[in-house]
């Protein structure tokens, strides 16, 4: 496989050319090993991604694990305290559980997970945004938010950084911190305006600011062309 046939096979695997078009561009020698070369390149590409996924999982899963370990050790060492605390929790839940569950489930059900922005790094100054969005698209919202904040400090806030910073904070369950950023984009004439309005509404629900949530909901429902109009209608019925 020489560089040219390598490129042609990649184009085929990416769906940019058909098998016939691929075959037409190869020499008889290259055609003889074509199936083998396709299989090899396909597997190699998957292997690179599998290794990337392994690193992604190594970064993602221990967070859940560490959280649990702390709780278990506390319970086992201080069982009496645990039972007292548990009783108080049960009492608290008895009073407030239904209310909180309703808000949480509404939030979870309607949460929109923005997949992120495919930043083209055509200029080196775009690197910081590209870097932050790489972490964002991997679901590493903690690092993404840190990098976006640094970027804002260095070059000033934009609708893009405000929106993804707000989203990153909301996805970390920090609605209170997310609200100012999302609010700013919602009030601007921005490409992110409607998505921001929806996330802001969810942030208010998550933060139990129901009056603000209702106002945001009314605002979305007043525009039938809104990106989240149908979701807003559904949410409105559920809130009633």
């Amino acid at each position: 496989m020489n560089p040219t046939s390598f490129e042609h096979i990649e184009a085929y695997l990416d769906g940019n050319i058909t098998k016939q078009e691929l075959e037409a561009q190869l020499t008889p020698d290259q055609l003889a090993t074509l199936e083998e070369d396709i299989e090899w390149l396909k597997n190699s590409r998957i292997a690179v991604q599998a290794e990337g996924l392994r690193q992604q999982l190594k970064e993602t899963l221990p967070k859940a694990k560490n959280k649990e370990t702390k709780v278990v050790s506390f319970y086992s060492n201080k069982q009496q305290l645990y039972w007292i605390a548990a009783s108080l929790v049960v009492l608290f839940v008895a009073f407030w559980g239904v209310y909180i569950n309703d808000q949480s489930s509404l939030y979870e059900k309607h949460l929109y997970k923005d997949p992120g922005l495919p930043v083209l790094m055509s200029q080196s100054e775009q690197y910081q945004l590209y870097d932050a969005m790489s972490f964002y698209s991997e679901g590493n919202y903690v690092v993404a938010a840190q990098k976006l904040k640094t970027l804002q400090e260095e070059t000033g806030a934009t609708d893009t950084t405000n929106y993804y910073l707000g989203a990153s904070l909301l996805y970390q369950d920090k609605p209170n911190e997310a609200i100012p950023y999302l609010n700013e984009v919602s009030e601007a004439n921005s490409a992110f305006k409607q998505k921001s309005e929806w996330l802001l509404l969810l942030a208010y629900i998550k933060d139990e600011q129901l009056e603000e949530a209702k106002a945001s909901l009314s605002n979305i429902l007043s525009n039938e062309q809104h990106l989240f109009y149908k979701e807003a209608q559904e949410l409105s019925q559920e809130l009633d």
Partner: peptide, 18 residues
């Protein structure tokens, strides 16, 4: 380079800059 291209789906131009 391979991670950036195949896993992160960065373009060659982006990789060149990084």
């Amino acid at each position: 380079l391979l991670q950036l291209f195949y896993y992160k789906k960065s373009s060659l131009r982006e990789i060149a800059t990084v």
